[in-house]
Amino acid sequence: MTNLSPAYIEGATVLSQERLTEDVYRLTVATTTGGAPGQFYMVRAWEREPLLARPLSVHSVDEDTVSFLYQVRGRGTELLARLDEGGKVALTGPLGHGFHTEELCGRIAIVTGGIGIAPMFCLARTLPAGDVTVIAGFKSTPYAVAQFVDLGVDVRVATEDGCDGTRGFCTAIFDPHIYDMVVTCGPMSMMARVAHLCAEAGVPCQASLEAHMACGVGACLVCSCATVLGNQRVCADGPVFDAAEVVWHA
């Protein structure tokens, strides 16, 4: 894993803004700052309000672009969703410690819930497609899964309303015993279940956590999470952790 050092870009140009569902968007901006799988940026497209930038994981990165997959959840992401081609955003990043890709070998399961699928495309592009299975859960209509199919990755979908794939939660179609390594991102309750199943099966698991952030660089401690090693900062010590070290609250 090579985590790139952060930079600050005052006015990165928006190249495209795609609306994938009613509240999920893919934003692509022009920047050469890159990012490793699992890293994130602090992104803002406003001057004063809201006060804080929004942390968005790297969805895809190329030589001169970075893409973010995000869900509208409040004022900040509402403003991001209003951006059109040619608009400007301020970026700080890439930040954090991403996936330990050097440890990912053998049969790999990528288990995601909802917008937790966001950082996984960047990761999947670095792995041998034939060794990877994506198990993705959604409340209803899936999104951002076709690109994994284009990579040649096996994709299995679960939806809570049964509109696509298996009805129910993605954890119901996940069997850790048939994999050598697991990575996960999504709601905390889902990741806690994945971590528990992996621990029972003796399969290593890396979990990318989501938390409210203020600074993004570890100074404010807003995003602290409990681990067996003590409190850790999701932004600076993570966001990717060994799932066995996270204290998962019921």
Rank of each mutant, 00 (worst) to 15 (best):
G93T: 06
E22A: 14
A90V: 00
V72W: 10
V111I: 13
F99Q: 06
V43R: 01
T32N: 13
L91A: 08
A30F: 01
I115R: 04
Y25Q: 02
R73G: 13
R44Q: 10
V43M: 03
G106T: 09
E49W: 08
T92Y: 09
V24S: 04
P119Y: 04
A90N: 04
A90R: 05
T31H: 07
A81M: 02
P119G: 03
G74F: 13
G76L: 11
T31Q: 07
E102C: 01
H100D: 15
T112W: 10
L51H: 05
G114C: 12
D62W: 07
G96T: 02
Y25F: 14
V58R: 10
R107H: 09
W46R: 03
V66T: 05
L104K: 08
E63W: 03
V24C: 11
M120D: 11
G96F: 00
E63S: 14
W46A: 01
T65E: 11
I117H: 02
A30V: 07
Q39S: 10
T33D: 11
L80R: 05
T92V: 12
V111E: 07
R48S: 15
S67V: 04
L95H: 12
V61T: 11
R48Q: 15
G116W: 12
E103N: 14
D23S: 13
S60P: 00
Q39R: 08
M42N: 07
H100K: 15
F99M: 08
G35F: 05
Q71S: 12
P55F: 03
S60N: 12
R107P: 08
G106P: 13
M120H: 15
R75Y: 05
H97T: 14
H100Y: 13
R26D: 07
D62G: 15
F40Q: 03
T21G: 10
T32W: 07
Y25G: 08
A45V: 04
T77D: 04
F68T: 06
A81P: 03
Y25D: 01
G38N: 05
F99W: 13
L51M: 12
G34C: 07
Q39E: 11
Q39N: 11
F99H: 12
T28F: 02
G114P: 11
A36S: 15
G114T: 05
E49S: 11
P119T: 05
A30K: 13
G35Y: 06
V66M: 04
T28L: 02
I115A: 09
L27V: 04
T32Q: 14
Q71V: 10
A81G: 09
V43A: 00
E63D: 15
G35S: 07
Y70T: 09
I110C: 05
G76E: 06
D84A: 12
V111P: 12
H97Q: 14
D23M: 02
V24Y: 00
G93H: 09
L56N: 05
Y41K: 05
V111G: 10
H59D: 15
V111Q: 07
P55Q: 06
A36H: 13
G87I: 04
P37N: 03
S67P: 10
L104C: 01
P55E: 09
D62P: 04
F68E: 06
G74I: 11
G114F: 03
S60D: 15
S67E: 02
T65S: 14
R82P: 00
M42S: 09
